[in-house]
Design a protein around this nucleic acid. Structure first.
Lengths: 362, 362
DNA sequence: TTGAAAGCGATACCAC
DNA sequence: GTGGTATCGCTTTCAA
């Protein structure tokens, strides 16, 4: 199992196998395959025939080592099962494919250790960039952690991109692609307020999650703007999942049953909330209005269809990749583009059928 | 930008940088890092310090070239946005991580050319296996195409795994992880029949899609078993998406409005069907019963909660990876395991609230 | 236009 | 226990 010299057979055909069999030098084979160098038609034909015969493909590792190689971006997601993130990934994938880039997806399962391990793994792979998706916990430590990632990747010739996360403070080599999270929440809450709702159950998400904080803040600002009192007792924190939506509404129905609307942190939470309401014999939106956040396909598939905040996830993915690609192209001159490394996309309310003015007798 | 010899600084620190700075040989550094060789405490300490100082990580490509390297599996999906596939991917990811393997996800967008390109790309990457997910079109050409992939990957020391796809005929080096698709459909249709339904609208999926064919066949078998007439006019083909479910029901309401139940090819199709029914003023399940297939989270989040067929997607992913890993471990003795390369997992009906006996007056 | 040979970064075998 | 060094497969000068 040690020194096979036989042409082909063992494991995988190499460029040398092709060269020998075609009676040319490895350099020529390489040229034909790369296509970035003038080669005689005759030679090209001979080489290509052997390539087909042997079903040869170049070894990406060797190629990468020697300088060439397909640029690759890594996408790190908490949970591949989340619809919103899947759309960002799709956006990245699409844009990457368009440029002939490769993209990998890794999942962290919300585990910081695993996140670190993956970042290093990707650094080993020599990826052009690591794209981190989704809200983050613990703002203070977050800054330090990300700054470390950023510098580490930068030193390795890679680059950190934060998508849907807070930007980094100070002079850190990272790019952030964000959306107007707070603004979306502000608009969404305003929509509820202008419909006449005042007692609204707010389910922003985990208290320590940055996206949840932004959504809560946006809602509060809207209440302030409307001169409506904001009751902290109407806020219930919890994970962005169906169960939380269900349980929070169940609990609220017990504790503060006078709410006329639910402002959910995500569409999935809204779905859970709606179910709980129905289980309690309440109708949506006749008795209680519900709004979500994200505008994933689920939002328009629920009954009633959910009024929610549209977040341009797929576009964020595309933008993130473009940012990386641009930075590579223009890589010659290192411009510290003082701006341009924090892009913010807009959000907007999508009105569907889950909101009504509060019932008159309320 | 060409011949930097300075320790570190340029791009990325190498093992040589570490060796020099620690005043030891590259061999020693390699040993310390691999950890699979006795090394003095003193040396290890010195090396590790420098590694930390330089924030050094080994170059995965070089390592891979030289023999070592992290085993990697590639998952090829049609659409990363599909919930069912995402769960398979999650299963693969989890099992891979457990073993310290890496896993990549690529999307084909239902494009055969792109699929081919990705298979080759993965072959270049030297992945341990390529896992293809989801139903396939055109059975005849499919066999040839997959056989080619299988041999090609096998020759490159890799391996093809088909998940949720028909197994390959003949002596082809591939592994198939499948679920009892037809059986699930049979059970689901039986459930409907035993509730008294006879006129059921069937939305199996695309006519050329293998999973759709299996689901349709299972349904037909159930009708036969019940001695109930199966009306081909009640079958409507189309993509596995929400829109198709909606439109198919709309059309059926016009053409053959006497159906009392809908047998949808997937949960998402069922969701669309339910919406269309409601839009037409029909209640689910009081007026029309609906069942789905897949049992993705959406199924239990709809109102009413969907009775559907549970497919163990995540487990399929885990099983697929285990199959690849086992085959690697036992790689020494090449056993052509005549069986064991076609695993079939069971499916079962999950009863929820979307089925009632047909209305008496029907 | 084509060939020979020097790396790319890490591993592992062979001496010491 | 530690240090040389050939080698992995490919790209890319440098000559011819």
């Amino acid at each position: 199992m040690s020194q096979r010299k036989a042409t082909s057979d063992a494991g995988r055909a190499t460029i040398r196998d092709v060269a020998e069999r075609a009676g040319v030098s490895v350099a020529s084979v390489s040229r034909v395959l790369s296509g970035n160098y003038p080669v005689s038609e005759e030679l090209r034909r001979r080489v290509m025939k052997v390539v087909r015969d042997l079903d040869y493909v170049t070894n990406a590792h060797a190629r990468s080592l020697a300088g060439g190689g397909t640029p690759t971006v890594a996408i790190l997601i908490n949970n591949i099962t989340g619809a919103a993130f899947a759309h960002v990934a799709k956006g990245v994938e699409g844009a990457a494919t368009l440029r002939g880039w490769l993209s990998l997806v890794g999942t962290t399962g919300d585990d910081p250790e695993r996140e670190l391990a993956l970042v290093n793994l990707m650094r080993q792979q020599g990826v052009a960039a690591v794209i981190l998706l989704g809200g983050a916990y613990d703002y203070d430590e977050y800054q330090l952690r990300m700054a470390r990632f950023a510098r580490s990747l930068d030193a390795a010739g890679s680059h950190l991109v934060l998508v849907g996360r807070p930007p980094l403070e100070g002079d850190v080599p990272a790019t952030t692609v964000d959306y107007d999270n707070e603004g979306g929440a502000y608009a969404m809450a305003s929509h509820l307020l202008s419909a006449g709702h005042r007692r609204v159950l707010v389910l922003p998400g985990h208290a320590e999650l940055t996206t949840a904080q932004g959504r809560l803040k946006g809602a509060q600002r809207a209440f302030d703007a409307y001169g409506a009192p904001f009751d902290p007792g109407m806020v219930r924190h919890g994970p962005y999942d169906y169960e939380h939506g269900y349980e929070a509404v169940e609990a609220a129905l017990h504790d503060t049953p006078d709410f006329t609307a639910v402002l959910a942190g995500t569409d999935v939470v809204a779905a859970g909330a709606a179910q709980a309401l129905r289980a309690a014999g309440l109708r949506v939106p006749e008795d209680v209005s519900i709004v979500g956040y994200d505008d994933i396909p689920l939002a328009s598939q629920l009954t009633p269809q959910l009024t929610t905040v549209h977040v341009p996830y797929e576009e964020m993915g595309r933008v993130a990749l473009r940012a990386v690609a641009d930075r590579r192209e223009g890589g010659g001159g290192r411009r510290k583009s003082p701006d341009g490394d924090h892009l913010v996309l807009g959000t907007h309310v999508v009105v569907r059928n889950s909101v009504r003015p509060p019932a008159a007798h309320a």
